[in-house]
Lab assay of single mutants.
Amino acid sequence: GMDVRRLKVNELREELQRRGLDTRGLKAELAERLQAALSGPSSG
């Protein structure tokens, strides 16, 4: 899988935006949010 901790802030935001998620917050928050999205149930 993707290691969200290795991504830069702008990369985290890009991935979040692609999934329609909130791109605001600290890098740690963005990484946590993206990780949750990646490990969560895949819809679609």
Score class of each variant (00 low, 15 high):
1 G>L: 14
23 T>M: 04
11 E>P: 01
11 E>W: 07
34 L>I: 02
8 K>M: 07
19 R>W: 05
31 A>F: 09
44 G>F: 14
1 G>P: 14
2 M>S: 06
3 D>W: 15
38 L>D: 02
24 R>L: 07
10 N>T: 12
23 T>L: 03
10 N>H: 15
27 K>H: 11
9 V>N: 03
29 E>L: 06
35 Q>V: 09
29 E>S: 05
39 S>Y: 12
37 A>P: 01
15 E>T: 03
40 G>E: 09
38 L>Y: 05
12 L>A: 01
4 V>T: 05
37 A>W: 13
1 G>T: 14
31 A>R: 14
3 D>P: 06
32 E>S: 11
34 L>D: 00
13 R>K: 08
27 K>T: 06
8 K>G: 13
34 L>P: 00
8 K>H: 08
19 R>Y: 04
36 A>R: 14
29 E>V: 10
9 V>Y: 15
28 A>M: 07
27 K>Y: 13
42 S>H: 11
41 P>N: 13
15 E>F: 07
4 V>M: 06
26 L>S: 15
25 G>I: 02
30 L>K: 00
33 R>G: 00
6 R>W: 07
35 Q>A: 12
21 L>Y: 04
8 K>Y: 05
33 R>H: 01
9 V>T: 08
24 R>D: 08
28 A>D: 10
7 L>C: 07
35 Q>E: 09
20 G>Y: 03
6 R>T: 10
6 R>I: 07
39 S>E: 09
22 D>I: 06
40 G>A: 14
1 G>H: 14
40 G>R: 13
17 Q>T: 07
8 K>A: 08
26 L>A: 15
15 E>D: 01
44 G>A: 12
15 E>A: 09
23 T>G: 03
38 L>V: 06
37 A>T: 05
34 L>H: 00
24 R>E: 09
41 P>Q: 14
23 T>S: 07
25 G>E: 02
36 A>T: 08
20 G>P: 00
1 G>R: 12
12 L>Y: 01
27 K>L: 10
25 G>F: 00
16 L>P: 00
16 L>D: 00
11 E>A: 07
10 N>E: 14
20 G>A: 03
40 G>W: 10
14 E>P: 00
2 M>L: 14
16 L>F: 02
35 Q>L: 15
24 R>T: 14
44 G>N: 12
3 D>M: 10
1 G>W: 11
42 S>V: 11
21 L>R: 03
34 L>S: 00
22 D>M: 05
33 R>F: 02
6 R>F: 09
33 R>Q: 02
43 S>Y: 12
21 L>H: 04
36 A>S: 08
39 S>G: 11
7 L>S: 01
21 L>N: 02
18 R>Y: 04
5 R>Y: 13
2 M>W: 12
44 G>I: 12
35 Q>C: 15
22 D>K: 08
15 E>W: 10
26 L>M: 10
2 M>I: 14
31 A>N: 03
39 S>I: 10
17 Q>M: 13
20 G>W: 03
33 R>P: 00
44 G>H: 12
